[in-house]
Design a protein around this nucleic acid. Structure first.
Lengths: 148, 148
DNA sequence: TTCGGGATGTTATACTATTACGGCTAAGTA
DNA sequence: TACTTAGCCGTAATAGTATAACATCCCGAA
């Protein structure tokens, strides 16, 4: 049976790094490095200093198992459905949850638009703030949305 | 004669806040709060503590005279040509300069794509990393660009 | 003139991230 | 076996970013 990409990546990391991933993945909201550091379960397995946490996070970022949410200084697990492609991170101001939305076509359009002014594009980071579907009180029929 | 939007906004702020804007605007690269705080010219006019700087920055952000570059914890002046609309911030890894590129159409597409999953969209932040045109060694004819 | 509110000053502290260094262990080699 | 070296991990110290809390001043309204 074929391993999923996530499983094969996780096979490469140490048990401690894996534990960090598990906590991020099981959290509904993004976690900061110090949230992780102060987690009793991670303390219990030997995390005592920020460096240790940051080392694990660095590895998970390189494997693209997690995203860094720049505007929150925090981390979320990558959505397992589209592990490879570019993402939009949609941050709900109300419940704090972050959705990792696939953004292949947006990325393509951005690339196309900026190529003249910025020919050496390497990384793309899109973060949205607002209110997610679950926290939106209006009925679905009358919803509207605008970006400022 | 009509004032520019920038001028009319700047008319509202205190001389000290204006001075902070001037420094950000005249800088080629994004400035952090502590870069500003440690600037001799700002010290000379009475900036002594981070709070003062952050207050000025907050006001300038609200007036949309500056952008916060989330991935750098730093601030750049808004491009004067498109003060009102959404922007893409393109950060050059080589020279450190940031281009503020208009992004009306990208914003519209993002809005359209995420409206179902994220109907309450309020803010859009797009940051790119890579190498700008000036720092790109290749000849213009053979340039290509891809977003990961 | 006194009151109250907004802007500004000041101090302390919280939060985020990195550097530097030292020890351990596992793989390769004489 | 003993040596070496490179990478991983632990630890301490410090750098960098941001906010809270409270004092003070100044000005306009009553």
């Amino acid at each position: 049976m074929p391993e999923t990409p996530k499983e094969s990546k996780l096979a490469e990391v140490s048990p401690k790094t894996r534990k960090v991933f598990d906590f991020i993945e099981s959290s509904k909201s993004p976690l900061g490095a110090y949230d992780l550091l102060n987690d009793q379960n991670l303390r219990a397995i030997g995390f005592k200093a920020p460096t240790q946490i940051y080392r694990a996070l660095k590895q998970l970022l390189e494997l693209q198992l997690i995203h860094r949410v720049e505007s929150l200084n925090a981390f979320v697990a990558c959505c397992t459905e589209h592990e490879k492609g570019p993402s939009i991170l949609a941050i709900c101001d109300s419940c704090g949850q972050v959705q990792d939305i696939p953004a292949e076509d947006i990325a393509a359009q951005v690339t196309k638009e900026v190529v003249k002014k910025f020919p050496g594009l390497k990384e793309l980071n899109i973060e949205l703030k607002g209110v997610c579907e679950e926290c939106t009180p209006e009925s679905p029929e009358v919803r509207t949305a605008t970006a400022s």
